[in-house]
Design a protein around this nucleic acid. Structure first.
Length: 222
DNA sequence: GTCCAGGGCCTAC
DNA sequence: GTAGGCCATGGA
């Protein structure tokens, strides 16, 4: 298992290679909230099409989505995949927020821990989506774990692939300064690294982690 | 044609 | 508590 200084070293190397990414604040908290649900198991490029459609229809907001028909939403978000399921979940999640808090801003007034509990109670919002919303929309320090994070820490430090979501999250959070900007950019850096490795084959030639990665010489991170 | 992407839920053991 | 099935479009 990596120690705190190693996790900071990994961030330093990524940051030196990619620069500060200032990732995914979106135009509004509503947009980030909606995007977080749409991007589940889907490429961001397809999500952008869905978001553009929603925007064009004047439905890129929690309040407006809460009033829209599920079928209308489904048609607009079709490019993002799983569109029937996501339309239902989006509308219900937005309705829940409006009915219980009136707006995202009011919901985000909760402290991090209760906010996370509340979000996890909403159908369609699991741990990764909840943490993405907390970090990128509410701008509170909750580290986001995704498939890339798991693969990268496995390749670089031999962290077992079977580690639980909360286990890996704890590893980062207990070893890093609890800062929103750091958590935000760290996650963005790992996605950037994964994208680079997916595009360039064979990978790891220009890998910023080649100095520390266990598999850099013979395997790609993905 | 095949594979899989910035998951999550439900069901079965 | 966890493995397996399901949801679905678009790009490589």
């Amino acid at each position: 298992m990596p120690e705190g200084r190693q996790l900071l070293e990994m961030y330093r190397l990524l940051r030196a290679r990619f620069g500060f990414l200032d990732w995914w604040p979106g135009d509004t908290a509503d947009e980030v909230f909606i995007g977080a649900i749409l991007t589940q198991q889907t490429t961001w490029k397809n999500v952008e099409k869905a978001i553009a459609n929603l925007k064009g229809a004047g439905l890129l907001g929690v309040a407006s989505l809460s009033r829209a028909k599920t079928e209308t939403i489904a048609e607009l978000i079709r490019p993002s995949g799983y569109y029937r399921q996501k339309a239902l979940r989006l509308r219900e999640a937005c309705s829940w927020v409006i009915e219980n808090y009136g707006s995202l801003e009011s919901l985000f007034a909760l402290d991090l821990k209760p906010l996370r509990e509340v979000l996890l109670g909403i159908n369609g919002i699991g741990p990764e989506t909840a943490d993405s919303i907390i970090l990128y929309a509410a701008e509170k320090p909750s580290f986001v774990i995704d498939a890339y994070t798991k693969r990268i820490t496995n390749r670089v430090y031999g962290v077992p692939m079977g580690i639980s979501y909360d286990g890996l999250k704890q590893l980062f959070e207990s070893n890093l300064p609890r800062k929103t900007e750091l958590f935000n950019d760290y996650h963005a850096q790992m996605v950037e690294l994964a994208k680079m490795h997916c595009k360039s084959k064979p990978a790891c030639g220009g890998c910023p982690l080649s100095k520390i990665c266990l598999y850099a010489a013979k395997a790609k991170i993905q």
